[in-house]
Amino acid sequence: MSEHADTSLLLYWKAWAALLVITLVMAFFTSTGVIVVGIAAKVTIIGAWFMHLKQERLDFVLYVAVSLVFFSLLLFGLIAPDGAAM
């Protein structure tokens, strides 16, 4: 295996270690704020490093991020107040 490939694999294992630490923090400190920040951090790490969005064009990354994150938050934001008011 080339030196470049070894370096690339090392980056994946660093991302894995970060994901593991965040998972443990979320499981230990089960406050809603910590969990929401933990989810956001893990989704970013998986998307950027494992799914290689870090290497994609910015307009493509925005297309994915806006489609998924914005519309998910919009959907939740529109119905959550009604749920809380029930």
């Binding site: 519309f71 959550a80 009604d82 749920g83």
Partner: peptide, 25 residues
């Protein structure tokens, strides 16, 4: 594949938003 991921992701988002709505209520 990315278009599939985005649409399938929105499907799960719908499930979880619906879950959040029911739980809050």
């Amino acid at each position: 594949m990315w278009w599939f991921i985005v649409t399938d992701g929105l499907l799960f988002a719908g499930f979880l938003c619906s879950y959040g709505f029911s739980r809050l209520g």
